[in-house]
Design a protein around this nucleic acid. Structure first.
Length: 803
DNA sequence: AGCACGCCGACT
DNA sequence: GTCGGCGTGCTC
């Protein structure tokens, strides 16, 4: 009999990043399985923590007194064999804790919440009682530092006892339901014995007799809606033995409104699309873990390829996973997939409440949904028998998580595909250089879609040199060509989209007399002006303070706001085109939940002529009436000290250009820039991805950057600057001997924003092609540098940004 | 992480 | 002399 369990405990440190053995109480020996959550005692006190069982055995390897498992939280494993193995791989691959990996794979409600309470011992002195303010127990988390000290003192005197509670926040939503208990004839007979004036009872018996044959309990809300009978009436019925009130499990349905999405039929494919579908379907049927890269301009019909290949996967009894960037997970997108697959689709994205997310997860886990659509973390969806994994907009940076575990959803997708022997389809109009290069080498199979499915020509792109324009129009954000085009749209009652590229700068406050810039007291960066809250905010730590009226440095009143924000452009636009109705979309106007969708809806309903926004308008919007797309400043990102700056700019311009002329009307794109000759802008103008790819690869080769090199970013941080610096140099000295002469070390350097949240950051980058010893040295570094004496170490494999 | 153990300064 | 500060090590 399996008596021992190996458990990964919820204590995210390097020293506890391994299984601990526990005794399984006899009661649970038959049912406990790997992948279930448990509550276990951990440490010398009475501390209790949540843990995941990863294995069960007849013998324990630990030579010592084993503690028993306190509680089993699941009836069925929440992590299956595949996901347990994936968690282990992910932990090693990203240098993260196994527990963190397991937690990111599951809905957040499955992570326990902990409560620590103290209660007075019987006969404690009055002085001790005073602290409790008449309460029988205190939650330690609510205590201030002074109170905490006093409690600690009481603890030493054994005047209080401590207790720990582990709460499972995963709650199944239920509705009350009614189960008839008697036969129809019996109900009719009973009705005769009830006084005629007991109207409600007659009504209930009438209802019950009609549903006496119901096998399943009937949900109360529906009964109430139909008859007006409430829970009180049901309780009466229950007392009389007519029926039973039960709790029925239900799902919170975030897409209840979409339940009746009309079903759509597969579209007719172009020759290019047909070939693509055939190749992918064949790989799926033959269980080949092949990776396809679809390179296709906007409008080339990638989505239809995804839908039809998914269709054939589920027709073959398999399941499918479709990953989409968070920003593209719009109701439009969801409707499109639901329209094809109906109730078989589960949607996972950040807009869901924790409970909704948990319910979608359960639907997948129970096999009730065969198609999963979701953003980054949906890559961990508990699907079995996966026949196809799709990743749309595969170049999107949001697929990489920027805290522990720092994983890239693409890597996870490839791992799962290997496990399930199924193909992966990566799709983009502007693939990442990494993926495109792999396709070049034959690691991925390249599928190029050169034609647009709707036969529309790509929009005409005009580049305006703002250097010349500046001389003509003073300091305007609008070139004369742009203004003229906007006016024309107003006359023709067509819509325009204007994008302000805010990557690479923000609006800050500077004194015009002494040049003083207001900075965050915690971080070494300037504070950003937020007109919505009338405060200055730090984008890194969240620090907030009032807008200064007088320069703190020279007391001048000429402290003003600098930089181009959407608000500033909006007011300029109102001056130049007073008759235009403008909708602004940026972080400020979309902060509130649902605001994003609301703005898009308004624009879709033609309640505005111009949609002005930041990068977020570049992705996935589909408005047929938009005939003009303007980019106000194409090159702000080009100045960044980031080797991917050109790639980002090219991708952004190509994407935003694709927003113009999506339907019958021809589209026009105007790009304003100070660098009209820059290749990223020149090639984006001609929609020339392949040209950009070749050009950029040459530069990456010369600079020794990905995809020619693998990269690892190592960061050390400490509240004292010299401690962080000392550590990073020590780490460099530790790593260097393990590397071959071909490896390149950059740095160590202080990070561009050296101080964040009262900590100083130093970093170094390792560029390499093949370093067999590197993994183990890095693992060792993580092991040795336990978060002690204030030092924190982070390893980021293939970082998306070095700055 | 959180807890106990253990070794040094300032107090009854 | 002890109380209590936080540096160090361990948790099945």
């Amino acid at each position: 009999m399996a008596k021992f369990a190996q458990v990964i405990v919820d204590v995210p440190t390097m020293q506890t990043n391994r299984p601990f053995d526990y005794q399984i109480p006899t009661l649970w020996q038959a049912q406990l399985k790997p992948g279930m959550r448990v509550v276990v005692p951990f440490g010398k006190g009475k501390r209790r923590v949540q843990g995941f069982v990863i294995a069960i055995s007849d013998e324990a390897s630990f030579q010592g007194q084993l503690k028993p498992i306190i509680q089993v939280l699941d009836l069925q494993p929440v992590l299956n064999t595949e996901l347990l193995a994936l968690a282990k791989w992910l932990a090693t691959r990203t240098f993260a804790f196994q527990i963190s990996c397991m937690q990111t794979m599951l809905p957040s409600v499955m992570k326990a919440s902990y409560v620590k309470k103290v209660q007075l011992v019987a006969g404690a002195p009055a002085a001790a009682k005073a602290l409790f303010h008449g309460h029988s127990q205190l939650d330690v988390a609510d205590l201030g530092s002074a109170e905490l000290k006093q409690v600690l003192a009481l603890q030493r005197q054994h005047l209080v006892t401590v207790s720990y509670q582990v709460h499972d926040r995963a709650k199944v939503k239920t509705v009350k339901a009614v189960q008839p208990l008697c036969s129809q004839a019996a109900y009719v007979a009973m009705a005769k014995k009830i006084p005629a004036n007991a109207k409600r009872q007659h009504q209930l018996l009438d209802f019950l007799s009609q549903h006496a044959t119901a096998k399943k309990p009937l949900p109360l809300p529906q009964i109430t809606a139909a008859t007006g009978l409430t829970l009180t009436h049901m309780h009466t019925g229950e007392q009389k033995g007519w029926l039973k009130v039960v709790a029925l499990e239900t799902y919170r349905d975030p897409y209840a409104k979409l339940a009746q999405v009309p079903r759509t039929q597969p579209l007719t494919l172009t020759a290019e699309q047909r070939t693509a579908v055939a190749q992918i379907t064949a790989a799926s049927e033959q269980q080949q873990a092949k990776t396809f890269l679809i390179e296709g301009v906007t409008g080339s019909g990638k989505t239809e390829i995804y839908l039809q290949t998914i269709q054939s996967a589920i027709a073959a009894g398999k399941t499918a996973l479709m990953l989409v960037p968070e920003i593209a997970l719009t109701p439009q997108m969801v409707t499109r997939v639901k329209g094809r697959f109906g109730q078989r689709v589960a949607v996972l994205h950040s807009g869901l409440s924790q409970g909704e997310r948990y319910d979608e997860w359960r639907r997948i886990e129970r096999g009730e949904a065969q198609v999963v659509v979701g953003a980054r973390s949906a890559v961990f969806a508990p699907l079995t028998k996966i026949g196809l994994i799709v990743m749309d907009e595969e170049h999107e940076t949001s697929y990489k998580q920027d805290d522990m575990p720092r994983y890239h959803a693409r890597d996870v997708a490839l791992w799962r595909a290997r496990y399930h022997h199924c193909p992966v389809v990566l799709g983009s109009a502007t693939p990442s250089l990494e993926s495109r290069a792999r396709a070049q080498k034959g690691v991925y199979q390249l599928i190029r879609l050169k034609k647009r499915a709707n036969q529309q020509p790509l929009p005409e792109v005009t580049v305006v040199d703002m250097k010349n324009e500046l001389k003509k129009t003073k300091e305007s954000n609008f070139s004369s060509l742009m203004l003229q085009a906007l006016r024309q749209r107003l006359v023709h009652k067509e819509q325009s989209v204007l994008m302000l590229n805010r990557r690479g700068f923000s609006s800050f406050v500077m004194c015009r007399d002494c040049g003083f810039v207001l900075k965050c007291p915690n971080c070494d960066i300037s504070l950003t002006l937020h007109m919505d809250t009338h405060t200055m905010k730090c984008h890194y730590c969240g620090h907030e303070e009032p807008i200064p009226q007088i320069c703190p440095n020279c007391h001048s009143r000429k402290i003003r706001y600098y930089g181009t924000g959407t608000q500033k452009v909006e007011s300029e636009l109102k001056q130049l085109l007073p008759q235009a109705r403008v909708l602004r979309m940026d972080v400020d106007t979309t902060r509130r939940k649902g605001a994003y969708g609301k703005i898009l809806h308004q624009f879709g309903q033609r309640q505005a002529d111009i949609l002005l926004g930041t990068q977020m308008i570049a992705k996935g919007l589909d408005f047929p009436e938009v005939t003009l797309v303007g980019v106000l400043n194409a090159d702000t990102a080009l100045g960044l000290p980031d080797f991917r700056a050109s790639e980002r700019t090219f991708q952004l311009l190509t994407q935003v250009s694709g927003r113009a002329g999506r339907a019958a009307k021809k589209g026009e794109v105007i790009i304003q820039t100070y660098n009209p000759e820059h290749y990223a802008i020149r090639l984006a103008r001609h929609h020339d991805y392949e040209g950009f790819y070749k050009r950029e690869m040459t530069l990456r080769h010369q600079g020794g950057y990905p995809p020619y090199y693998f990269t690892i970013l190592l960061t050390a941080s400490h509240p004292e600057e010299n401690e962080a610096a000392k550590k990073i140099f020590q780490l460099m000295n530790q790593i260097k001997p393990a590397l071959s002469p071909q490896a390149i070390l950059l740095g160590p350097t202080p990070r561009a924003i050296a101080r964040v949240n009262r900590r100083y950051y130093y970093q170094m980058v390792i560029k390499y092609k093949r370093e067999p010893k590197l993994e183990s040295v890095l693992a060792q570094i993580m092991q040795e540098n336990q978060a002690r004496n204030g030092i924190q170490i982070a390893i980021d494999r293939e970082p998306l940004s070095f700055i």
